[in-house]
Each structure stands twice: as structure tokens, then as C-alpha cells.
Amino acid sequence: MTDARPPILEIRGLRKKFHDVEVLRGIDLAVQSQELVFVIGPSGSGKSTLLRCCNRLEEPSAGSVRIDGVDITARSTDINAMRRQIGMVFQSFNLYPHMTVLRNVTLALAKVLRKPRAEAERIGKAALDRVGLADKARSYPGELSGGQQQRVAIARALALEPKVMLFDEPTSALDPELVGSVLNVMRELKRGGMTMLVVSHEMRFARDAADRVVFMDHGVIVEEGLPQQMFSAPSEARTRAFIAELAR
């Protein structure tokens, strides 16, 4: 964090209102290159909304989000061009059920980046290989387990070589025995130098993989710090209460 380079993801004064409810009330957060930042907090604290504002699936009401220096909220920014640099992984996978696994991964390569079919498939297979599912290329999502589906979803984002990846509770919809395989893939990404912002409650994973943990409540960042410090000795009472709740 002492890095002098500009952060890959920089959020400043971010606010989001749904009708009269202000879900995000001024968020400032920077994620450095190759950093893995964990966002925790009670449900309704705004952490998913924060993530979704980072690729404008939700339109921020105020503030800015910069990806590698480019303000994605600016009117002049081509949001579709920016989104391919921001990988997004959803809680419910959201694979395309009518397409094979390989087609799920190569669709954007072919239709957005206009890569020739052979090249798109080569990249797609390499991405599937990274998540350990090269042998499932011809399967349909419905034929895979939840853990495998989520890994395909990661490969789909990975294939576009994003500058940062956003994970929205990637393991919350999984049976406990399938969580490990997804976390292993994320560990592998971290080792490969991927910049990641992760909303999740996987405390053990956060402890050994995260560079920083951010605790959110009621639309603000309450405190942030190193994982050990956040989980063992948080300074804020709200954080302490939440961590105690998680650990039960």
C-alpha cells in the first residue's frame, strides 16, 4: 500500500440512493494492483451495491469510480469498453444455460472483442484450464455442480483479461463441500497477480489470502485493516460485534 503507483480501482465519495434510501453514504476505497481486498459487513450494509457500482450495474448517485485512472462514471466513458476490463462474478453464477461451457466463456471474446473463432476458443480453453475445468468445455451449465458452475463463471470473466475482478458473495450459494474448489481458484488468481475486490463471509479465506479487510455498515466503511488485526482486534465496537457473530 506504500506503492506510489495509482490504484487499479479507486472509489471516491461514492453515494447510491434507491428512491429515498441512501444505501451508500460516501465510500472512499482504493485497491492497488495485485491487491486482494475483502469487504465484510451485515446484510443491507451496502457491500453488494458498492461492488455493483464498480462496473455500473448500479448507477452511482454521486462520487466517482476510477479503473486504472479512467472514471467509469464519466459521461464520455464507453462503459461497455470499461466493463470488459472489470471481471464480475455473481453469487448465483448467472451462466448462460443455453450455451456450452466453452461458449459461455468465449461469447464476449467473439462478440465484444471480435476475436476469430479459433483464437477465442484457444483463450477460452486456457481460461477453463486455469479453473480446472478444461474437460467440461462441451458440457452445459445444467450438467455441472454449483462449484463447477462458479468456476466457469470465473473463467468467463478471466478470459477477457480484466484489470480487476469483483466477486459478489461467490460462495454463498454453494453447498459447503463445494466452497473449497472455488476458493482455491481465487487463491490461484491471487498468486497470479490478479487484483480483486471480494464481498464474502469466508473468514478463513480472508485470513490467509486477503491483503486488507474492509468492514462496512449502513452504507459507510466503519474500519479497515490487515486481516489479522480486523479479525483478532478490531477497534470499532460494531466490527467486533459483527466478527463475533461471524465466528459463532
Binding site: 461497455n80 470488459r84 448465483s92 461469447l107 465484444v112
Partner: peptide, 26 residues
């Protein structure tokens, strides 16, 4: 499901592309 739109849009596919390749076929 809305998630289909969101997944496609988050890979940079535009509105019509999402409609043509993801939503309408289903």
C-alpha cells in the same frame, strides 16, 4: 432472470448483443 442480463452486460456486451445472444434465444 435479471442475472442473465447482468452477466452479459458485465462482459461488455451491449443491450442489443445481450438481447440477441442471451435473452431472446432463451
Amino acid at each position: 432472470p435479471k442475472g442473465q442480463w447482468e452477466a452479459a452486460r458485465s462482459t461488455g456486451l451491449n443491450f442489443l448483443g445481450t438481447l440477441a445472444y442471451i435473452v431472446l434465444p432463451q
